[in-house]
Structure formats: structure tokens, C-alpha cells
């Protein structure tokens, strides 16, 4: 594990990503304590105050401090995106492993259905689910998790099949090792790596999807300081105060970039032989 971290930090993407994510994680854990002001305190005299000494990133349409709202909102956006990815990955991993393990006709049948489900684009699937579960942060999280499941199932299956065909697994079979040993000691460690890479990149998607659902009014509800919702609410005031839009947009972009970089860095760290 420490070896992996050292190799990750040696790649340029990995080093940048770890630094950015450390900051984001700090915001998630301590955001409400560190925020300079109350994120929900309304100040009508301070409406649309430009960035300056009073409000470092300016004030919004209700005079609320944009920086404080960003810091408090980190938790909602990032942690729920992580949760959604985790749930989707676990569900996908179970289906994918099962399919690869059963093989033959069962594998064929499961994968045909997974492919068919993937004909529904992710955002559409999330919209459908939110439309029947009802809007709200937790339902949006669940919807994203379900929307991710078929894709993760596909990835898991193909990784598991590739690992199954490796020489070291064949060697273990030839040695007469038990099924549990082969699955847990030989296959699992080699399946987990590519899965983590895929899941990390999907966190970036989840952050964007979650912000998009909130932006469309189907995820987090006002007055929550969720980043996508902040952009949606500020759109009418783009003439008076562009900073209300730019600040959360940059926050979403930086978070997504951080997870994308981490995914790329991990991929390089896990495949030390691949020179490109």
C-alpha cells in the first residue's frame, strides 16, 4: 500500500491529484468549522458584494458569503458522489464477478442484459429514477449508484476474465490450490487495481452528475449550499454578479479534475511497465 502511494506520488498527475484531494478532503471534514461566515446568514445590504476583504469570493443574491457556502457545500457534493460511486461499484462488482465466475450461458445472458440496460444513458437513467423516487440528495445519490452499476459490472467482468486467463492463475490451478485460495489470493488483488482506477474516474463523473441533477432542481434542494444548485440559483444574476456562478463552477471543475488525475496517476502507478 505504501509502495503504491510512493509510486503514485512519483507520477506528476498523482502528486498533483493527492495534493488537491488532501485539500478537498480537509474541506469535507472541517468545512463548516473553517468557514469564515455562516453559509445561510442573509445580508440584504451585502447583496452582490464583489469579492474583497469582506467576502473573499463575493456575496450572492441574498448577501450570503460565497466562500463559506462553497466550503460547507463540499461535504454534500463530494461525499455523496463518493458514496454513489462506492455503491455502484460494489453492486457492479458483485454482478460482474458472478457473471465471470458462472461463465458460459449464464455469463452470456447476464452480459446481454447489462448491455441492454446500458442503452439508457446515465443521466436519463438518473432522471427516470429521481422522477419516481422523488427529488432530493439521497435519492439522487441512489440514482447515480444504480446508473453506474451496469458499466461497473462490465468492467469487473472483463478484468476478472482477463485475470482468470493469466499464467499465475493457471499455475495455481496446476499446483492444485483450492478455489478460495485462487479467488482470494491470486485473482482478487489483481482485479482490485483496475477496479479502483475505474471507480476513481467515475467519482469525477458522479460529482458532475450530482451537480447536474441539483442544477436541474432534482438533487439537493434550496437553501442547501450544493455547488450545482448554487450555479442554478445564480444564473439569473449573471449580469450583476458573475462571481456567484464562477466560484462553484471552478469548485466542481477542480474536484472532477482531481479525481480524473488520481485515476490516471493510479493507472500509471499500477502498470509500472507501461512506458506510455
Amino acid at each position: 500500500m505504501t509502495d503504491l502511494l510512493r509510486r503514485l506520488l512519483r507520477t506528476p498527475q498523482g502528486a498533483v491529484a493527492v495534493a488537491m484531494l488532501a485539500l478537498i478532503l480537509l474541506l469535507c471534514l472541517l468545512g463548516p468549522e473553517l468557514a469564515p461566515r455562516d453559509p445561510e446568514a442573509i445580508d440584504f445590504l451585502g447583496r452582490f458584494r464583489p469579492p474583497g476583504a469582506e467576502n473573499w469570493l463575493g456575496a450572492d443574491q441574498l448577501g450570503r458569503d460565497v466562500l463559506s457556502r462553497l466550503m460547507v457545500g463540499a461535504r454534500a457534493t463530494v461525499l455523496l458522489a463518493l458514496l454513489a460511486t462506492l455503491l455502484g461499484t460494489l453492486a457492479g462488482a458483485v454482478i460482474g464477478t458472478l457473471s465471470a465466475y458462472l461463465g458460459g450461458r449464464w455469463d452470456e445472458a447476464i452480459m446481454r442484459n447489462v448491455d441492454a440496460v446500458m442503452a439508457i444513458p446515465g443521466l436519463l437513467m438518473a432522471l427516470l429514477l429521481v422522477s419516481s423516487l422523488g427529488k432530493g440528495s439521497l435519492n439522487a445519490t441512489l440514482a447515480i449508484a444504480i446508473a453506474f452499476t451496469p458499466g461497473m459490472a462490465r468492467v469487473t467482468r472483463s478484468v476478472a476474465l482477463a485475470v482468470r486467463a493469466q499464467d499465475y492463475v493457471k499455475a495455481a490451478l496446476a499446483r492444485g490450490e483450492g478455489a478460495a485460495f485462487i479467488v482470494l489470493r491470486e485473482m482478487l488483488p489483481n482485479v482490485v487495481g483496475p477496479m479502483i482506477v475505474e471507480a476513481t474516474i467515475r467519482v469525477a463523473f458522479a460529482v458532475m452528475l450530482f451537480a447536474t441533477l441539483s442544477f436541474l432542481g432534482l438533487g439537493a434542494q434550496p437553501p442547501a449550499p450544493e455547488w450545482g444548485l448554487m450555479v442554478a440559483e445564480a444564473r439569473r444574476f449573471v449580469h450583476q454578479a458573475p462571481w456567484i456562478i464562477i466560484a462553484p463552477s471552478v469548485a466542481i471543475a477542480l474536484t472532477a479534475i482531481a479525481f480524473n488525475l488520481l485515476g490516471d496517476g493510479l493507472r500509471d502507478a499500477l502498470n509500472p511497465r507501461d512506458e506510455r
Binding site: L209, T212, G228, V231, S249, I252, A253, I257
Partner: peptide, 22 residues
Amino acid sequence: SYLGVSLPEFVIATLVVMLFAD
């Protein structure tokens, strides 16, 4: 292109409107 895959559509759309329309 990294920036492109890390920005959701609604952010790009809003920025594009801010620049080209406003």
C-alpha cells in the same frame, strides 16, 4: 481536453453564455 472532461455541460453552457451572449 482534461478541462473538457472535467466540466459538466451546465457549467460549460453557462460560461459560454456569459462570454458570447452577455
